[in-house]
Amino acid sequence: MSLLELKRPAMYPPGKGPSFQAAYARAARRYGFEPGKYAGYAKRNNVVVKVKSKDDKATEHEVPAHTEYVVPVTIGTPGVTLNLDFDTGSSDLWVWSSELAGEGKRESKAHAIYDPSKSSTAKKTEGTWNISYGDGSSASGNVYTDNVTVAGITIKGQAVELAKNLSSSFLSDGGNDGLLGLAWPAINTVQPQPVATPVENMMKQKLVDPQVFTVKLGHGDEASFYSFGFIDKTVTSQPISYASVDNSQGFWQVPSTSWTINGEEQNREGNTTILDTGTTLCLVDDSVVEAIYQAIEGARYDNSQGGWKYPSNAQIPTVTFAVGDTQFTVNEKDFGFGDAGNGFTFGGIQSRGDNPFDIFGDVFLKSVYVVFDQGETRVGLAQRED
Score class of each variant (00 low, 15 high):
residue 116 P to N: 10
residue 296 I to V: 14
residue 290 E to V: 14
residue 175 G to L: 03
residue 272 T to N: 09
residue 116 P to H: 11
residue 280 T to G: 08
residue 338 G to F: 07
residue 184 W to L: 06
residue 232 D to N: 15
residue 137 S to Q: 10
residue 287 S to C: 03
residue 304 S to K: 11
residue 158 Q to K: 11
residue 241 S to C: 08
residue 325 D to A: 13
residue 310 Y to L: 09
residue 41 Y to S: 03
residue 109 K to D: 08
residue 240 I to G: 08
residue 97 S to F: 10
residue 176 N to P: 06
residue 230 F to N: 04
residue 262 N to D: 12
residue 213 F to Q: 02
residue 324 G to I: 03
residue 102 G to M: 01
residue 374 Q to S: 13
residue 55 D to P: 05
residue 70 V to T: 06
residue 268 R to H: 06
residue 17 G to R: 09
residue 70 V to K: 04
residue 1 M to G: 09
residue 381 L to F: 07
residue 174 G to D: 09
residue 209 D to H: 15
residue 304 S to C: 00
residue 236 T to N: 08
residue 116 P to V: 09
residue 170 F to R: 02
residue 126 E to R: 14
residue 163 A to Y: 10
residue 283 L to K: 05
residue 264 E to Q: 13
residue 272 T to I: 04
residue 283 L to P: 05
residue 361 G to N: 06
residue 78 P to Q: 01
residue 288 V to I: 15
residue 13 P to F: 04
residue 207 L to C: 12
residue 204 K to I: 10
residue 33 F to E: 00
residue 284 V to S: 07
residue 50 K to N: 04
residue 181 G to R: 01
residue 278 G to I: 11
residue 342 N to H: 12
residue 213 F to T: 04
residue 84 L to N: 02
residue 245 V to K: 03
residue 23 A to T: 10
residue 348 G to Q: 01
residue 221 D to T: 15
residue 3 L to C: 01
residue 73 V to I: 14
residue 354 D to K: 15
residue 301 Y to C: 06
residue 117 S to C: 00
residue 229 G to R: 09
residue 161 E to T: 07
residue 127 G to V: 00
residue 116 P to S: 09
residue 168 S to P: 05
residue 200 E to G: 02
residue 143 V to N: 04
residue 286 D to R: 04
residue 88 T to A: 13
